[in-house]
């Protein structure tokens, strides 16, 4: 979500197989997803602009 206005910016389906062991959070696949979502939030914090999904 973005801040002021509070909007959904990105919706992302997480395709990692289940059940998800804690170890999953240390894999490159997982890190890649975190990094991508982090990028959206980082972009908003910098510009205050809403990026499109």
């Amino acid at each position: 979500m973005s801040k002021s206005p509070g909007r959904f910016v990105v919706k992302k389906e997480i395709d990692l197989p289940r059940p998800r062991d804690l170890e999953v959070t240390y894999t490159p696949e997982f890190t890649h997803i975190v990094h991508e979502l982090r990028g959206h939030i980082g972009a908003m914090r910098k510009t205050g602009a809403v990026t499109n999904p």
């Binding site: 979500m1 959904f8 910016v9 990105v10 919706k11 992302k12 389906e13 997480i14 998800r20 999953v24 959070t25 997982f30 975190v34 979502l37 982090r38 959206h40 939030i41």
Partner: peptide
């Protein structure tokens, strides 16, 4: 916490 969205489909 982005890592916390680990079990899921996620929205930001």
């Amino acid at each position: 916490d982005l890592r916390e969205s680990w079990p899921t489909r996620s929205m930001s």
